[in-house]
């Protein structure tokens, strides 16, 4: 449930951020930006969750 909520959040947020970014002009660049943002959200989320796992 937690992972699903995080992935859904990352997907929706990165879609909006890709639509409004100044760093991309073409559709292809926007898609790449969205995928990078999505990956960053999920990757950082997983990294932080593993970090907390080792903290008692």
């Amino acid at each position: 449930m937690h992972l699903l909520a995080m992935i859904t959040f990352a997907a929706l947020t990165s879609t909006v951020l890709a639509a409004i970014t100044n760093e991309a002009e073409t559709t292809r660049e926007r898609c790449l930006y969205g995928l990078k943002t999505f990956g960053a959200f999920v990757g950082v989320g997983l990294a932080i969750s593993w970090l907390f796992y080792f903290i008692p």
């Binding site: 909520a5 959040f9 929706l12 947020t13 879609t15 909006v16 639509a19 409004i20």
Partner: peptide, 20 residues
Amino acid sequence: GRAVLIGSSIYAMVGLGLLM
């Protein structure tokens, strides 16, 4: 195109937030 993407994403977040 951007309008549809933005609108659908934000309303989906609102709907999911209420479902949760």
